[in-house]
Design a protein around this nucleic acid. Sequence first.
DNA 1: TGATGTCTACTAAATAATTAGTAGATAAGC
DNA 2: GCTTATCTACTAATTATTTAGTAGACATCA
Lengths: 125, 125
Amino acid sequence: MKQKKQLLTEVELELMNILWKLEKGSVRNILEHKSMKRDLAYTSAATIMRILEQKKFTKSSKVGNTFYYHATLSKEDYQARHLNNISEKLFDNTPLSMVARLIDDGQLSKKDIKELKDTLNNIQK
Amino acid sequence: MKQKKQLLTEVELELMNILWKLEKGSVRNILEHKSMKRDLAYTSAATIMRILEQKKFTKSSKVGNTFYYHATLSKEDYQARHLNNISEKLFDNTPLSMVARLIDDGQLSKKDIKELKDTLNNIQK
DNA sequence: TGATGTCTACTAAATAATTAGTAGATAAGC
DNA sequence: GCTTATCTACTAATTATTTAGTAGACATCA
């Protein structure tokens, strides 16, 4: 009875992105991080961090009276989860078509494509 | 002053997916489509369709007293838009890493990878 | 024509997501 | 030890999303 693989909401993702950069950080650390673009009240950020812990995306440890959070899921794993989700919901479960879309839409540069070729050649001769 | 490229919400996407299959359809057509999994009341589906039109994802034409909707944005274009969005929000604007994630996570089968190689070889010698 | 059914328009209720305030606890500086 | 800062916990308000009801228009067909 495994639970469905949950996705992050917008704000949650924004804070997680910062936490992944920090590796470990308090609400304050996150709020003051240079890549924090949203103008959140301290208590709002604290609320989100509590929610993220409830949802098991983070764990915390207390030092003095402040909580330090760290992610329990790597960004890479979350990326994979998210891609898997949109592959289902938007690409009829054909992940290859996601790549096709990136190429057709010009989101992959020529350089990207060259690199990608190299990568592919190295994984299975 | 171009407006931000809006994404579909969950239900909206579900109905759009059906509309993209139908090419053109009424609320009834959509509700009764075999791939309609959500158990929505007729009026709920009608509300979503109205919202989608407000948001410019569809246009409608009236035949008798019923509206027939069609998408104003192709599924491919929406896919590209969505990928572009998550590339920004989750992949630090490096779409190539999205592909890397698909590969590393095993979401692309061996066959997919072979096909992808072929595709890449054909686009720029 | 009139009874019945289907459709839209409007409204509202329920739920989820986002934001932030208040109170009380703990810590830190003097 | 007091005063001031900062922190968590709890609560609440706001906004977005999802769902569906009610009313009236229109259509169909016996």
